[in-house]
């Protein structure tokens, strides 16, 4: 008779066991803030479609200190989300080969940052021009 009795360890709270996992869960957690922002935007859209008074009500609500604090937190979370997303580029994307040489992962991460800063500046300039 076999004396084997393999023991399977439980997975409860696995993400607390290693700082690497904690960081992972924090960056996954930023998805909650992205969802919250999408809902705020959608709410604004609905108010916009309900006419000028409703829209102005929404704009007022956006000016409340609570809303400003909420958006500051949101901004921090989404910037952090962007930061981790670019940091994972070397993991998630195929190696880029230029002139027969593998491009350094750090360069790709920096490229991501450049694109984000570019998108930010361009968006801001366009909105500034429209305003």
């Amino acid at each position: 008779m076999s004396k084997r009795r393999p023991y399977v360890r439980p997975m409860d709270g696995w993400w607390k066991k290693n700082p690497y996992y904690v960081e992972y869960m924090v960056h996954e957690g930023t998805a909650l803030f992205v969802a919250a922002y999408a809902i705020v935007l959608t709410f604004g859209l609905v108010r916009l479609s309900q006419g000028e008074a409703a829209w102005n009500g929404w704009l007022e609500a956006m000016k409340s200190p609570l809303s400003i604090i909420f958006h500051l937190v949101l901004l921090a979370a989404i910037v952090y989300h962007a930061f981790t997303w670019f940091k994972l580029f070397p993991l998630t994307t195929p190696p880029v080969v230029l002139n027969g040489k593998k491009v350094e992962p750090e360069l790709i991460v920096r490229g991501g940052w450049a694109a984000a800063i570019g998108a930010t500046v361009v968006s801001f300039v366009i909105v500034w021009g429209l305003a």
Binding site: A82, A119, T120
Partner: peptide
């Protein structure tokens, strides 16, 4: 979200 999220929230 990474490219335009921060500026939109701002």
């Amino acid at each position: 979200a990474a490219l335009f999220g921060p500026i939109m929230v701002f």
